[in-house]
C-alpha cells in the first residue's frame, strides 16, 4: 500500500497542494486530473521522490519517503511527460543502456519481449526515425525495465495516435493485473474514466468534477 498523509506543498508563498491524503492499493490505477498548473505533476513528483513535500508524510509499505528514499526509488517506474530517451541510439541500445545502469540484470531477450508486449517491434531502428507513438511506448518500456511495483505516468499518451494510445492503455491493464500500482496523469477524460479505478481531482475548476460525477467514478477532491 502506498500512503499519502496530509501532504502540503508550497513553492515560496504559493500553495500547490493542500492537506491531501489518499492511499493506493496494489492492482489499482489512480487517475490525476485538473487544469494546467493545478499541481498534478507536482503530486506525481512527490510520489516519485523527486520533490519533497513541505509537510505531510508519504510511505510505501514499511518504507517512509523521507528516510528510505533510495529504497522507495528502486520500486518506482517513472514515465516523464517529455520523452526521455536517447535519440541517437536504437531502441535496442536505449533498452540496454538503461538496463546496464539499472538495479536488475535482464537479458536481451527479456528486453526485446518487453518491447514486443507493447507492440514496439522496431528493435534495431534509431529512435529518431520512430513515430511519436513508438517513442512514447519506448518511454514507457524503459521505465519498466526494473519491474517497478509503482508506476507513475505523466501524460504518457499526449500527442499520439489513437491506436498507440489504445495499445498503451491495454498494456497498463496488463500491468494492473500484475498487481502494479499505477498513477496516471491525463487531460483525456475518456481515457481516465475508461482506465482508472479512482481519480484525484486537483484544483478548483468544476469541469473535471462534473465529468467524473457523470461517469460515476470514485473521486478524491483536492483544492
Amino acid at each position: 500500500m502506498l500512503k499519502v498523509q496530509r501532504i502540503h506543498k508550497k513553492y515560496g508563498k504559493t500553495t500547490v497542494l493542500n492537506n491531501l491524503s489518499f492511499s493506493i492499493a496494489p492492482g489499482e490505477i489512480i487517475g490525476l486530473v485538473g487544469e494546467n498548473g493545478a499541481g498534478k505533476s507536482t503530486l506525481l513528483k512527490l510520489l516519485a521522490t523527486i520533490e519533497k513535500p513541505t509537510s505531510g508524510k508519504l510511505s510505501y509499505k514499511e518504507l517512509t519517503y523521507d528516510k528510505k528514499r533510495k529504497e522507495v526509488r528502486k520500486r518506482i517506474g517513472y514515465v516523464p511527460q517529455d520523452v526521455a530517451i536517447w535519440d541517437d541510439l536504437t531502441v535496442k541500445e536505449n533498452m540496454k543502456f538503461f538496463e546496464k545502469l539499472s538495479w536488475v540484470n535482464k537479458s536481451e531477450d527479456e528486453l526485446f519481449q518487453l518491447c514486443k508486449d507493447m507492440n514496439l517491434d522496431r528493435w534495431k531502428d534509431p529512435v529518431k526515425n520512430l513515430s511519436g507513438g513508438m517513442k512514447r511506448k519506448l518511454n514507457l518500456a524503459i521505465s519498466l525495465i526494473h519491474d517497478p511495483e509503482i508506476l507513475l505516468l505523466d501524460e504518457p499518451t499526449v500527442g499520439i495516435d489513437l491506436k498507440s494510445r489504445k495499445e498503451i492503455g491495454a498494456y497498463l491493464q496488463t500491468l494492473k493485473e500484475q498487481q502494479k500500482m499505477i498513477v496516471y496523469i491525463s487531460h483525456d477524460m475518456d481515457e481516465i474514466t475508461e482506465l482508472c479505478d479512482r481519480v484525484i481531482c486537483i484544483g478548483s475548476d468544476p469541469f473535471y468534477k462534473n465529468v467524473l460525477e457523470e461517469s460515476g467514478k470514485k473521486m478524491i477532491i483536492c483544492k
Binding site: 516519485a48 523527486i50 528502486k74 517513472y78 516523464p80 526521455a84 530517451i85 536517447w86 539499472s102
Partner: peptide, 9 residues
C-alpha cells in the same frame, strides 16, 4: 530529458 531517469536507476 533523460537525466530525470537517473533518479530511478
Amino acid at each position: 530529458n533523460t537525466f530525470i531517469r537517473f533518479s530511478f536507476i
